[in-house]
């Protein structure tokens, strides 16, 4: 869901060890990289390395049908052109989705026809949804390992709050890191002469730095990145001057890393 805000379609590269996704947005400003290791799944099997080209907008719509307690199984057969999603309801209760289906058009004076009786028995167990797989060209180009001058670790909820609040006030933000202070300043759209500083030193911030860094970014993208905040309690901002910002959310069996090109010039 976080990725679908940035990119509309992408390839999930599946192998025995993990599922990975890398995709760049159409404007070439942001790049997202996701990895979920096999141990992160209740069960995982990949008989053959294969890319699953998925329309993320459609996938997000389908995922909205799931409730938090649903177990989602993703399956793609060899040579298949669909990704099959199965939601297995853990509870015995019907989800609202089932209700909508079962009660639609029912004549209250007549008993359920056999078809609906069959559905009532099966639907609580599974919903099957298919998504067509596209043959999108995978992004195979990788970038060099970057040595960053600074790393700031802070609670992801604080980062989400800061960028969301600042996005109400301006389009861009300047992030400056010195030895003891991280300053996240709103920039006015037309002039940076009257920057309005925002208190940006929440509890639990760790700063590691070799060199003072000052970079300017589009807030819109940072807000989109921050949607991944629910995946991890902490977020890391890795920066060097004149190098893309890396916003990293690591979780137990994987990560989502977002790269953002800085603004250049004053």
């Amino acid at each position: 869901k976080s990725c679908s805000i940035l990119v509309t379609d992408a390839n999930f590269e599946c192998n025995e060890e993990n599922i990975m996704l890398q995709a760049m947005d159409n404007s070439h400003i942001a790049l997202v990289s996701v990895e979920i290791g096999a141990p992160g799944f209740t069960s995982y099997r990949c008989d053959r390395t294969m890319p699953l080209g998925v329309d993320l907008t459609s996938l997000t719509k389908v995922l909205r049908c799931a409730k938090d307690e649903n177990i989602c199984t993703l399956k793609a057969a060899d040579e298949a052109d669909v990704l099959n999603l199965v939601y297995d309801a853990k509870s015995a209760f019907f989800s609202p989705f089932f209700f909508a289906f079962m009660w639609h058009g029912r004549d209250a004076s007549s008993p359920f026809p056999p078809f609906f009786l069959l559905c009532s028995a099966l639907l609580p167990l599974f919903i099957h949804l298919n998504i067509s797989l596209s043959s999108q060209t995978p992004i195979t180009s990788s970038w060099p390992e970057t040595k960053y001058d600074t790393r700031v670790t802070l609670p992801s909820a604080e980062f989400t709050r800061i960028v969301r609040d600042l996005s109400q006030l301006g389009e861009h933000v300047r992030i400056e890191v010195s030895k003891e202070v991280v300053r996240i300043s709103k920039l006015k759209a037309k002039s940076s002469a009257e920057d309005e500083d925002n208190d940006s030193i929440p509890t639990g911030v760790v700063i590691e730095m070799n060199q003072h860094v000052s970079l300017t970014f589009s807030l819109k993208y940072l807000v989109n990145f921050s949607k991944s905040g629910s995946l991890s309690g902490e977020v890391q901002l890795l920066m060097s001057n004149d190098v893309p910002l890396l916003v990293a959310y690591d979780f137990t069996q994987g990560y989502i890393r977002c790269y953002l090109a800085p603004k250049i010039g004053d």
Binding site: P144, T216, A261, I264, G265
Partner: peptide, 13 residues
């Protein structure tokens, strides 16, 4: 301000 281009940057790397 102009915008840094990621695709170009990584291509040059």
């Amino acid at each position: 301000m102009s915008q840094f281009n990621l695709k170009q940057y990584y291509a040059e790397q």
